[in-house]
Design a protein around this nucleic acid. Structure first.
Lengths: 282, 282
DNA sequence: GTATCTTTGTGCACGCGTTCACAAAGGCAT
DNA sequence: ATGCCTTTGTGAACGCGTGCACAAAGATAC
């Protein structure tokens, strides 16, 4: 996952579990695709496959919304699209302000999925006066000074932060002060907000690091497997056909040796190859 | 959170819970900041605050890595930076390929956090021949035809998909076929991958929809609260000062009334203000 | 109307993640 | 050396989320 939520203590809202809320957009997307193909009804099994989840989970999720299905038939696609849209609050207009029009901010401004589904970019804000007045994705970039009036005039309640990490908290404070109560944060920083303000973060660097962890693990497992097999093969070749027990022991020994090597490397306090002493703030 | 994982059944790897792995980059970032300020040691409490988590959680997370702290003192910053980096696999080089050099792909290519921490953009790929040869963030864009050779030559095991949704699955298949085992997906689609391949997704649209849900809920609660208060005030004004019990009763009645009003509003299938009937039920 | 077949909705059990609370451990002053 | 103070590391309890498995419910055929 690329996000986390800084929520108050309340975990579920109006009885709908947070985990379910996070999946509703997924269902909605799948349903929209079906709707476009004029499919009238869909079973939980089909829809679950399309959304990439378990059908039992999907049914339980829908059960929190009410009983919208017909037993023996499935769910009415159009009806469900409407119900989920309503539940997510997508039947109304959500003006959004994007702060920080760098590469990422510009990409977000031009993102198609943004405009659809009730979200409307109400304004682009950047602190750099050289950017002021420039056209990005058909909108005029305004200076940070205009942040508060923009928010109040347009009734913005959702803000997107795409500034450098250093500026994020200050921008966040101003957004909240001006009345924004939901923030989508792309800056690699932890934002502190008062109760009642929701923050979700999207963090590239964190996602990559999680992938790297699993990647390393996969490589390690393979290596251990290779080592174990090699050791087992060697042992078998050397001692002839003793028994399965020997191979098992050899495998364990190989694993232990690898562990010790890692431990030894650890003590040096210095990584392998080009391990810089750590600096870059991701 | 902006991501989800399409993992095999294995939930924890090498004894480290997935939830902990997802937080390690957070700790690492906070520790790196401390390291730059030459802070020698840090307590779990301080570090937890900096990372935006609970201190007990942090200690438990670290306990999965081993006993790296000193009781009564705290954790050695440099040592911990190294340990976490190693655990996440950041002490080695991870060549990454970015496919789809549109607005977003270009932004990603130029993202600073990408280059840091062992991640290196090994190549940019785009299907549009008009893009081929162009320079983006100091790198030359290559055509999709060169995808497989690039991956094999550079030993890429992590791929980033920033293509339109329609092309994502095809690109994904080619990446996996060519040997990529970790994918970061920015396209708004569910990707199907074989076992052993990790997929994490970053989805703008989903994040916004989740925020909209909470935003709507907050607005609804406020409205109910206002209604209840208004009703209570009216009741109190009308019946004068009967007694504490009356006020309590009035409050309860108002709450119930508000609940009914909300329920009624729901039944109409018509939301508040500009709630279009969208597609409406069948 | 009855039987059969399909698919929903959910009770239940299990496992992961979080949090509390405290004992163990180390530093530091005396 | 001894006692006090701080902070870690973890056992245990709790709650949320997931998945199984099945009864209830509706459609459809005859």
């Amino acid at each position: 996952m690329a996000t986390g939520r800084t929520h108050r203590t309340a975990t579920r809202s109006r009885g709908i579990p947070e985990a379910t809320v996070a999946r509703l957009p997924l269902y909605l997307r799948a349903l929209t695709a079906l709707s476009e193909r004029s499919v009238p009804t869909v079973s939980s099994e089909e829809l679950a496959t399309a959304a990439g989840v378990n059908s039992a989970k999907l049914r339980k999720d829908f059960s929190y919304l009410g009983s919208y299905g017909t037993r023996g038939v499935g769910y009415d696609v159009e009806y469900l699209v409407y119900q989920i849209s309503r539940e997510l609050g997508l039947t109304q207009d959500w003006p959004v302000v994007i702060v920080g029009i760098g590469n990422l901010g510009a990409a977000l401004a031009g993102y198609g999925g943004f405009a659809s589904r009730g979200f409307r970019v109400a304004g682009l804000i950047d602190a750099d006066r050289a950017m002021t007045g420039k056209q990005v994705a058909g909108l005029t970039v305004r200076h940070t000074d205009e942040l508060e009036p923009l928010i109040k005039e347009s009734g913005v309640s959702i803000g997107v932060i795409a500034t450098p990490a250093g500026a994020a908290q200050a921008v966040c404070n101003r957004l909240v002060e001006a009345g924004v109560t939901s923030i989508l944060n792309f800056a690699p920083t932890v934002l502190n907000v008062p109760d009642g303000v929701d923050v979700r973060k999207v963090d590239l660097s964190i996602e990559l690091q999680i992938l790297a962890f699993h990647e390393q693990r996969k490589a390690g497992e393979e290596a251990e497997l290779r080592d174990a097999e090699a050791a087992a093969a060697a042992a078998a070749a050397q001692s002839g056909a003793v028994e399965g027990g020997a191979a098992g022991t050899a495998g364990t020994a190989a694993g232990t040796a690898a562990g010790n090597a890692a431990a030894a490397k650890k003590r040096t306090g210095q990584g392998p190859d080009g391990d810089v002493p750590a600096v870059m703030p991701a």
